[in-house]
Design a protein around this nucleic acid. Structure first.
Lengths: 117, 117
DNA sequence: TTAGGTACTCACTTTCGGGTGAGTTATTGT
DNA sequence: ACAATAACTCACCCGAAAGTGAGTACCTAA
């Protein structure tokens, strides 16, 4: 989860701030990189391979996709699984329970956005 | 709401992407700037003046605070009100209904973060 | 064996957001 | 009249994030 969050970079986290502050900030930073939640959403919707994700987002480059997938794995939001059965050996990404719960909140955020737009 | 979101900068928003994609991306971008949600939370908790907010976050500069307040006003998450009664004329920030609902979702996000940390 | 697809990584450039220093206007207390 | 405080704005810098181009290792079908 904290892979891309270097200590000190995020917040002052001093005692004068509310406890809410730091953790929320960290969560926001981990979910806000461009494409990240969209990719997660697509994986949840069944686009579980690199190539199918590529097709789903034509304007997303291989490089960024690879990077985001790496972050999602580090965050334990997805699992990288190598499928050896079924001859053309391939890699699939599986969503975790942790991610499913996050997506519920993300969807609430989406609903809020729609409601007040 | 869309004040700091330049068109074209955010997402491809092409037809091949799920409807979810673009809006969620925009919402995430509008809530993720550093300090923004913390400031909003403080205002909701009753720290309604520039100076009291400053005190609440010692490591936050005047400049960034001013900038974030401007964004929050543009997003219609807070209202800027000039109080002329009570001699020392001052400015207070009032939270909007829209923001109260957003804070509920932000709190869910916080809870998610705590649960899985 | 060689061409093609999958799934990347690395190095580099560009863009953007956060942060700093200085200055400004308005009001008010002494 | 003067200083102080509140509430900013503007110009600039720098580091991180986003994006691009090239290359690589592996597998497989022809």
């Amino acid at each position: 989860m904290s892979s891309q969050l270097k200590p000190g970079t995020s917040n002052a986290c001093n005692i004068t701030s509310l406890s809410l502050a730091c953790e929320v900030n960290d969560v926001l930073r981990s979910i806000s990189p461009r494409w990240k939640m969209q990719i997660l959403h697509k994986i949840a919707a069944g686009h579980v391979q690199f190539s199918t994700l590529k097709q789903a987002f034509p304007s997303l480059s291989d490089q960024i996709l690879g990077k985001r997938l790496g972050e999602l794995v580090a965050d334990e939001l997805i699992l990288k699984v190598v499928v050896k059965e079924k001859p053309p050996q391939h890699i699939v990404y599986e969503i975790t329970d942790r991610a499913m719960e996050l997506l519920k909140v993300i969807d609430d955020l989406h609903q809020w956005g729609l409601k007040w737009s």
